[in-house]
């Protein structure tokens, strides 16, 4: 039985406010001690992707706050949003492909 991937759940960036996710994420990212090397690399990739997506959302938040506070120009805020969307889409695409590959591997007859 494939042990569940760790490193997610409580660190969902849409649920935790900035700072809260970091504290919860630090506790949750320790991998299970019995994972095999294959599961490690999948888990690692997955965690990297999740961290990337979270950082991207933070950037978008920072830009939005700066824009609302009158610190940034409209163009800067819009561009930060666009960049965040691009990075998020990329991260999601990678996640989807990783998940698809993982499922395919898990279906292999051994």
């Amino acid at each position: 039985m494939i042990s569940p991937l760790s490193g997610l759940g409580a660190t969902d960036p849409l649920i935790q406010p900035p700072g809260g996710a970091q504290a919860a994420g630090a506790a949750a990212v320790a991998p299970a001690p019995t994972q095999s090397p294959d599961q490690d690399s999948f888990a690692q990739t997955f965690k990297d992707v999740a961290a990337n997506a979270r950082d991207t959302m933070r950037q978008g938040e920072a830009a939005a706050i700066a824009g609302l506070g009158g610190e940034a120009t409209i163009q800067e805020v819009v561009e930060a949003m666009m960049g965040a969307e691009q990075q998020l889409r990329t991260a999601l695409a990678i996640r989807d492909r990783v998940v698809a590959a993982y499922q395919e591997v898990s279906r292999m007859q051994i």
Partner: peptide, 26 residues
């Protein structure tokens, strides 16, 4: 932040996007 710059613009993976962004600011 300075008018005319797009420091660290993460919306511009391609140099054309960066150029267009700078021209829009200009």
């Amino acid at each position: 932040m300075i008018v005319g710059t797009v420091d660290g613009s993460s919306s511009a993976p391609l140099w054309v996007s960066e150029l267009a962004s700078r021209k829009a600011s200009w």
